[in-house]
Design a protein around this nucleic acid. Structure first.
Lengths: 143, 143
DNA sequence: GTGTTTGCAAAGTGTTTGCAATTTA
DNA sequence: TAAATTGCAAACACTTTGCAAACAC
């Protein structure tokens, strides 16, 4: 797996926004730095907002939501559906699957080769497969 | 696939509730009849509530939510997470996976043998796998 | 009768939107 | 300075909850 985390978070974030044709505003730059400077991450809007505030980045929750969706549309993020009550965004946009700890509400990538299909269904007539999402739900093992 | 739909919806519903140790109230019986009399179904609370009203069953939306959760806890239903904005309940509680039409918000079972794994990840230390959910997302094929 | 279930309305949670003020190019 | 973006507060969709009335056993 390639780590494309540079040692120049500002320039890196700026570059991503330019490539995505998104104006590099103060808020977007700050959020991009938080999201993309430290390897693969899974965040909720709420969590990212808290993290921004803790890093003295003044940004509203509404803007965090908007930004996460703009980043997703631009292909910088991927939305992961695992919990009906909250949306997760993944900085790893490549094809991969997820572990989900139901109790802790924690999400992690499943390593690339660890999950492979033997058979996949054919898409029904007139449709095509937009994506295949696998969630392996985990619980603490009782002793 | 075994169709366990009887020609005696009332007795069948009563039986299910008894086995689940749920009091057969008018509302639960009516909802069980709607859910289990017509083969495998995927419903949202809202949709089931509308259907109940259309069948002259007087029941509140709150009771529909409560009932769906009670049925799920009792193993009569299975919750399916495919859309962050609504919860689906599946009358097919056996191990199987789903097609999801993102545009139509429509859900369907994937036939048993049509999807099989070659490799599944080991659960991380201290955890066990509670379930593996696969969603094959579909879109209309452009001509 | 006693304990369970229901229905309503109110509250809650996560998310989106309208719009004036601000910022970017 | 024209167009895009932000922040706030209000609106929103879906879901849960508190409690008195109704119901099942």
């Amino acid at each position: 797996m390639v780590m494309d985390v540079t040692r120049r978070p500002y320039a890196d974030a700026l570059d991503r926004l330019r490539k995505a044709q998104l104006r590099p505003t103060r808020q977007r730059l700050a959020l991009a730095k938080l999201l993309f400077s430290t390897g693969d991450r899974h965040v909720t809007a709420e969590a990212l907002h808290k993290e921004a505030l803790a890093n003295r980045v003044r940004v509203s929750l509404a803007t965090v939501y908007n930004t996460l969706h703009q980043f997703t549309q631009a292909g910088l993020l991927r939305e992961v559906v695992v919990d009906p009550t909250r949306s997760y965004f993944d900085t790893n946009t490549s094809r991969h699957h997820h572990f989900y700890w139901e109790d802790e509400h924690d999400l992690a990538d499943i390593p690339d080769r660890a999950l492979e299909f033997d058979t996949l269904p054919l898409p029904p007539e007139g449709t095509e497969i937009a994506g295949v999402d696998v969630v392996v739900r985990l619980r603490r093992k009782p002793d």
